[in-house]
Design a protein around this nucleic acid. Structure first.
Lengths: 220, 220
DNA sequence: CAGGATAACTAGTCAGTGGCAAGATTCGGG
DNA sequence: CCCGAATCTTGCCACTGACTAGTTATCCTG
């Protein structure tokens, strides 16, 4: 019986796993969520998936490669969430709330996304995904009610798009966006790390809404 | 010749190192700064210090123990820096700048400080140091020019000090502090991780000053 | 000024990990 | 149908963190 079982894992019947790549990614997110990235082990992920310890190497070049894929997937999902939020509310404050919600709901992935020493930071797919997330973030500013350059969202690929992401927005709006991004990102990070004295009691989304409202041009 | 040399390390003459604990901590900070925490190796630190691979165990229980000490030292130095800043400028905005300057100047230590999965988060010394840093942060708010409860800094040990740190300040000032802390922490984190599109060009302190000025009750 | 307790360090060992190589099994396009 | 390619397995190696036992220096007490 070469196919050893693992608690909580359905013993695989066929020689091929079927969707090992996805299984490893979700297993990694789970493992990180309750044990931290430091304790993450490739071999443990393989055991959870019910495959041999060398199987993951065929889907990810190395450990950093797996985390690169995890981070890339995270940026892509964040982009989608931000785009959805922008369509729904047209508010930069709500965009920040969406950002926080994503961080809270995807704790493990979020932590990996912003720890560049964990993955291959020069991976083209990752860079593209991160770029898109930043674009989705800055794109929300052009639609701000009080944004000077507010206009229809031109997110088509025909856009020139030089190196700096958002050259269409004014410096003022850009600065407000930087402020909001920094604030909500810091809040999420500090909250997740338990740095706030009484983080267990309050509602994070509520608190984030309050402090985001203190950013000029976001207040309402 | 049992005492093997190491590039950049003065070969030790006596059997005892003298100040191995400090040497390991500084070596750790250096190693993390240019290779990341993930690549940090106890044995490598021992080699850098010119001692055997088991020597560090006498000063730190385990790897997490060393990082606990590093984080504790970081919180203590941050506390000192914040206190100094408060005496100098009496401005919450400048307090934030000091926070950022500390993060930039102590990149490796700063990263460790807010990654609780890396060290023993329940260590009493660490908790005390972190608490003091939070106190130093919130203490600055009581001295704010426009703070409702501004008064002489009562940092004596005679203070009751329940679990929540700063019960003396009003909710409004407390919220402004939370906003500023989140913002400057997020800015530092994003900057250090290279998340900003053009982080290499601009001056981080200058940018931080601008966005901190957008927090209501902090602006000029 | 002993001399025993103690702190600091060394050497050896072990399980676990990441990564590599070579072989086995299955799938899929000609 | 069959051969190439993708997937997975077994085996191996260097390295790491942690543990144990033994060695050397220091300190402190009588």
């Amino acid at each position: 019986m070469p196919l050893t079982s693992y608690p909580g894992v359905v013993t695989r019947q066929s020689y091929h796993h079927g969707d090992l790549r996805r299984a490893l990614l979700t297993a990694a997110a789970d493992a990180i969520a309750d044990s931290g990235v430091t304790a993450l082990s490739m071999r443990d992920l393989a055991r959870r998936a019910g495959v041999s310890h060398a199987a993951p190497a065929h889907h990810f070049a190395d450990k950093a490669g797996l985390l690169t894929a995890l981070a890339t997937d995270g940026f892509e999902r964040l982009t989608k969430a931000l785009a959805t939020s922008r369509l729904a509310s047209n508010s930069l404050l709500e965009l920040g709330v969406t950002y926080l919600r994503f961080a809270l709901a995807n704790r493990a992935t979020f932590e990996v996304m912003f720890r560049t020493d964990l993955y291959h930071a020069d991976d083209p797919e990752l860079l593209a995904a991160r770029r898109q997330a930043a674009d989705a973030l800055y794109a929300g500013m052009t639609d701000l009610p009080d944004a000077p350059l507010a206009g229809p969202s031109t997110t088509g690929p025909a856009r020139p798009a030089k190196e700096g992401t958002a050259e269409l927005v004014s410096d003022d709006v850009r600065e407000a966006g930087l402020a909001a991004w920094s604030m909500v990102h810091g809040f999420a990070t500090l909250w997740l790390s338990g740095a706030f004295p009484d983080s267990a009691q309050e509602d994070p989304v509520q608190a984030a809404r309050q402090i985001l409202g203190r950013v000029r041009q976001l207040g309402g």
